[in-house]
Design a protein around this nucleic acid. Sequence first.
DNA 1: GACATTAGTACGAGTCTCGTACTTAATAGT
DNA 2: ACTATTAAGTACGAGACTCGTACTAATGTC
Lengths: 387, 387
Amino acid sequence: MQRPTGSTEGLRRSNTGAVLRALRRLGPSTRVELAKDTGLAKATVGVIVADLEAAGAVAEEGSRPGVRGRPGRPVALRGERFVTLGLELNVDYVSAVVLDLAGDVVSSSSRPGGTTADLRELAGTALAEHVGTDSTLVGAMLAVPGLVRGDNRTVAWAPNLHVTWPDVADTLGSLVPGRRIEVSNDANCAAYAESHHGAATGAAHALYLTGTVGIGAGIVQDGEVMRGGAGFAGEVGHMPVGDSTALCGCGRRGCWEASIGLHAMLAAVAMTELDTPLRTAEAVAARALTDAGVRSGLERVGRDVGLGIAMLSSVLDPEVVVLGGYFAPLGDLVLEPARRTLDERLASAVQVRPDLRTSTLGIQAAALGAAEQSFGPVFAGERELTA
Amino acid sequence: MQRPTGSTEGLRRSNTGAVLRALRRLGPSTRVELAKDTGLAKATVGVIVADLEAAGAVAEEGSRPGVRGRPGRPVALRGERFVTLGLELNVDYVSAVVLDLAGDVVSSSSRPGGTTADLRELAGTALAEHVGTDSTLVGAMLAVPGLVRGDNRTVAWAPNLHVTWPDVADTLGSLVPGRRIEVSNDANCAAYAESHHGAATGAAHALYLTGTVGIGAGIVQDGEVMRGGAGFAGEVGHMPVGDSTALCGCGRRGCWEASIGLHAMLAAVAMTELDTPLRTAEAVAARALTDAGVRSGLERVGRDVGLGIAMLSSVLDPEVVVLGGYFAPLGDLVLEPARRTLDERLASAVQVRPDLRTSTLGIQAAALGAAEQSFGPVFAGERELTA
DNA sequence: GACATTAGTACGAGTCTCGTACTTAATAGT
DNA sequence: ACTATTAAGTACGAGACTCGTACTAATGTC
């Protein structure tokens, strides 16, 4: 999905990227299998694999015999050598994920707090403990709840965070010398994570919905995050959906998050907020087991969730919609009414309702997605893996 | 924007595509200018240009002196040799556009009628009159109002058309021997046309809204049509927007097109339909000059248009929104209230309202977009131009 | 008319992919 | 146990392509 650099070296980079992608997708594979999948010649794959092995990016596994003929020697991505760092700075917690080239999570941690110092400490610990001198940090990305420009560098608007941006950039810059830390929107990162590791694995077109006090969406189209003209695509919290009289925190009426945000949900079930959205939702789910009033309140919220997803689906046509944030603990209590509403709103018989699922990655979704995105240039064949 | 095929020949194709794209974007350019723009070496560009000239795809223009040094000899895309055919089959009219490699419309025609025979006749005439034996038909695409799968081959649902699909495919197949005719959605084609030739020229992220009895959207993201998982992205007519009590032709209530479709607009201004949507809208626009009631009716429609665009903008973040179909003749009568509504619904201070414009391509938009899309593989460096 | 300046080309070096032929390592059959 | 068969991986030379350098060509400037 990228333009080759023009030169033959660029061609090699591009083909190396194709081999790496095939290894991620197929798992351990022999050279012949890789050749078949990528369309390259056997000999070419052999050379590329040898280079990757020298760089420490792949390793041979034990052969698997049983069939006639010389057994192939499968090659697998090796995690030890190359890693990325994904961070999330949120209102009341920070997260860090170290991901390796094989796609395994090397380290995953989060803690309460929302300051630059909290983030710095968590990231510093993760790096110190899990990124040795023999491994290379390929890239790093920070996910934030806010509007981030398409260049992945400047935060245009993050009203809920109590930090100043040059400060964050400086702090993190000193942490990862020589590598710029990119910034991206948390919902976009989470969407990427779910489509690569979570509930939407394998779906090229996925939609992720994060729900806390605000509502945000991350859109994955053709395996890539969709950013829009300025980078602000997916800011769906203030779409006019649901109860048109509901007063939103932004001062207007009828915003979607005024109908399905955490506070609206709590009002619907007549309960109060606990310390975190997740714990609050768990308490609501527990109460729903015995309280019909809570169940019907969630039913109302679910219908409004479905209404918004109907809208988004008709625009984006995703295969899978993943609900994260406070929706995850509530599960089918919200999803079932949403599915019913969605079925009612399908425009035609040929349209298939997207699969509604709850997030499987929880609070680490955004940080994991940030880490995974940092591998993007490697798998795209834009950045070379050097020892 | 695409991956080379692996071989060095693929690299050449890819680089040739880059040169062609540069020529389209920059206009006539010298080899040095092309080298600077594409990042290729002077010598490489020289070879590629020579090949293209031999194939008849480009030609040298008169030099432009005036500066010190040897004057460059600009090279320009040549239209005579390679063309594409874009067709549109709609409910009550058919259109055909022949487009050449230089981006000039060679022929553009449309006529009433909505049968396979009408289409065949129009297409046959266009080909016979404007595609000589010395020119090559690079590709052909048909735009239809309906749901077309992402493979650009199968029509899943087109309830308004009174044709059978194998029939259309056979008829057109015999017209363009040896080349498969692709099919696509009309709004997607029109969006592509507007972003390449029309009101959104130069915008990488554009949204096109077509309005007749039904409402459809075409989405261009990063210069490419966004299709979604099944190919049905942009089916926005039945989003729940606007008057939630309005009864839609689909049997449900609250669909957007029940508030802003042609019939809803006519009800709002208390006028009756003429033979075509365009002529009807022109009559309404004329009446609005003297009739305050009509103006306030359009005002109401405009607000609902703005409400839906607010929704779409928060999801897609386009730079430009182009309104086609019956909206074009009404212009600011609808756009102004839409802009005001949009301004009210912007979620944050940093978000910029997308530019609302009326279509400049009129009834030919879809056919032109279909033709332009048929050049896609050429500019992407996937298909070679051979004499 | 000499010089400076810029455009375009010729050419050789380097890189890469590919197909073919060959080697290697296993199973199947006798 | 030995041979035939099958399939994986590699060595090697041919071919295609890009690139940098050196060179030629064409124009304006002094």
